[in-house]
Simulated assay, not measured.
Amino acid sequence: MSITYNGKSQLLAVAAIAQGGGMVFDWWDEIDESEEWQRFIFYFLSASYAFVSIVALTLEMVLLDLPGLLFFSAYTLLILFWAEIYHQARSLPVNKLRPAYYSINGLVYFAQACLWISVLLRESHLTVEISKLFVSVISFFTALGFMIYGGRLFFMLRRFPIDSRGRQKKLFEVGFVTVICCTCFLIRCIVVTLSAFDTKADLDVLDHPILNLIYYMLVEILPSALVLFILRKLPPKRVPEQYQEIR
């Protein structure tokens, strides 16, 4: 009798666990299918974007977080800023950096506009895939830009004397911002690539409010808030004569 009782207890325990797992998926599906939850999550995301933007304007920062390509332009502007510091410190020419920045951004906007027009005129699966892969590619190269110039600036600062004024603070700023930006753009690259080939992973729909909340919080809102917090004090105006060549 004891063996039978234990066997029934184990079956009941397994059934309870299975039922609990079913309840977890039930509440996920319930939220996905609820119009009230969909509205609440998207209003929450909108309010979060507004809050980060207001903080950015209050601090007079150039890293104003805006969705889409403006998000790309704001963060590539930080790459440009770091590239200018690095080139000036190494006595390298900087006169081509800003024209290159404007040219790259212009080409990106032009290409994206052409893709949007193509999708509107002929909404085929191929054009949608190409448009998403384009965003994935520019996200990858943005992450690469942070890795290159963030890494160069970080290791350049490490070569300064330990007692240099502000050395530790700048190392912290450059290191953490590089890691944060590389991570968020690489996540964007991976997720957008997956969504291009798997419609179930598409985030541009109302049916996945929880996934939208997780994705945009991790990829845009939280990274922007962290970057704004780390760079909350504007640096002094740069004077080229103050930079010395590092040998």
Rank of each mutant, 00 (worst) to 15 (best):
D29W: 06
K96R: 15
R232C: 02
E173L: 02
L69W: 09
R39C: 01
E123H: 14
E129T: 14
E60D: 15
I31K: 01
I54T: 05
R232T: 08
D65K: 06
T142G: 05
P240N: 02
F110H: 04
L206W: 11
L213V: 01
S9V: 04
I117M: 11
P93S: 06
V24G: 02
E35I: 11
G106L: 06
E35T: 09
S136R: 11
L57K: 14
A15F: 14
G175Q: 05
E60I: 03
S46Y: 06
A83N: 08
Y215L: 06
F197N: 02
F72R: 04
I190L: 08
C181L: 15
T127P: 02
L12D: 10
S34V: 08
I187Y: 13
G21W: 06
S224H: 02
I41S: 00
F71C: 11
K237A: 02
I148Y: 12
Y49W: 09
M156I: 07
I85G: 01
M156Q: 15
V14E: 15
V94C: 10
N95Q: 12
L64I: 03
R39F: 09
G106A: 05
L213K: 01
A225L: 11
P223I: 12
F185W: 15
L211Q: 14
L45W: 03
L78C: 06
K8R: 08
L63I: 01
V192S: 12
I210R: 04
F141Q: 12
T183I: 04
P236E: 10
V55D: 11
A18N: 15
H87F: 12
V52E: 11
G106K: 12
R158G: 00
I187E: 13
K170G: 00
T193D: 03
